[in-house]
């Protein structure tokens, strides 16, 4: 189990993370969603040991994490994640050797991620499609027997018809290898596909504003920011009808404004004077089935529902 407690991080003036707690159970799926710049990517990079944090603790089974190798990052861009001058065999050989695995494990891993080793091994990355490259990236992460895969927008640069295959692979790896997946995205539907029963963390300006099982949050989001985010998902007219309570934020995000109360107050359609005074903490105020950080939580139906 991997845990983060009170993680904060500032880049110069911008407070990227303002004390985030999270738990990634073994073999589980956890998703971070939010707008670009909300801190979700920074959090993933901190967890993968690629970025430092200012305050807070990262724990693995209760012990502070020193070796980040069990936490492997799957990059967004499979085109830059593989060294163009090395063949797939060379790319897999060195990390395997490092762990004392025989090279034959490379073939095993490639088959596991749905690639034909005889086709792939001798090739250079540019000879493979985006989807195949991302599978190689996943296979490479698996060479060091990781506990968690941190997938940061791992399918956004891949052809639409190939995306679901990668998502299905991540889901299968959870089952077959017991690897946990931290899925970072702005697309909730993909997060749901990787783990509908996992926890969804909605992150806004470096804080978690809502947290609960994916399907619970989708069925009845209570934080207005979550509601705005879910309302923005395109509706497949013809197959779906839009949710009745769709919501649009009052203002665009202005990071220069540092509210004293709720961070979402300047944009919130339901803001009250109280919201500008008090910064709500993550709780189950109002007996909601999920955690949230809103003084006036109210369930709204914003997600599109199937027609018919």
């Amino acid at each position: 189990m991997i845990e983060g407690r009170g993680i904060t991080k500032a880049f110069k003036q911008v407070q990227a993370l303002r004390g985030v707690d999270f738990v990634i159970p073994r073999g589980g799926a956890v998703s971070f969603i939010g707008e670009s710049g909300c801190g979700k990517t920074t959090l993933g990079r901190i967890l993968a040991g690629l970025e430092s944090h200012d305050e807070g603790r990262l724990l693995r089974d209760g012990e502070p994490i020193k070796d980040f190798r069990p936490i492997q990052l799957i990059h967004q861009d499979p085109y830059s994640a593989l060294n163009p001058t090395r063949t797939i065999a060379q790319i897999l050989r060195d990390p395997l050797r490092l762990r004392g695995h025989p090279f034959s494990k490379a073939e095993e891993l490639l088959s596991l991620v749905g690639l034909d080793p005889s086709y792939v091994l001798s090739r250079y990355p540019h000879q493979l499609s985006g989807g195949m490259r991302q599978r190689v990236v996943i296979a490479r992460a698996l060479t060091v027997d990781p506990e968690v895969l941190v997938a940061d927008e791992a399918v956004s640069m891949i052809d639409v018809s190939l995306r679901l295959g990668i998502l299905a692979l991540l889901r299968n790896l959870r089952e077959t290898l017991g690897v946990s997946v931290l899925f970072i995205t702005h697309d909730v539907a993909t997060a749901r596909y990787v783990g509908a029963e996992g926890e969804l963390y909605v992150i806004y300006r470096g804080t978690v504003v809502e947290r609960g099982p994916v399907d619970t949050v989708l069925a009845g989001p209570v934080h207005p920011y979550t509601q705005c985010l879910l309302s923005a998902i395109p509706v497949l007219h013809g197959l779906e009808v839009p949710g009745p309570d769709r919501l649009v934020p009052d203002e665009p995000l202005d990071e220069r404004v540092e509210p004293s109360g709720c961070l979402f107050e300047p944009r919130c359609p339901f803001a009250t004077p109280a919201c500008a005074q008090e910064q709500p903490l993550l709780s189950r105020l109002g007996d909601t089935p999920q955690d949230h950080a809103c003084l006036f939580p109210a369930r709204r139906h914003v997600v599109a529902v199937p027609a018919r």
Partner: peptide
């Protein structure tokens, strides 16, 4: 800054 260097560091190479 390219992913493959970060990945190599992440793999502990």
């Amino acid at each position: 800054e390219r992913g493959f260097i970060e990945a190599a560091r992440g793999l502990g190479l």
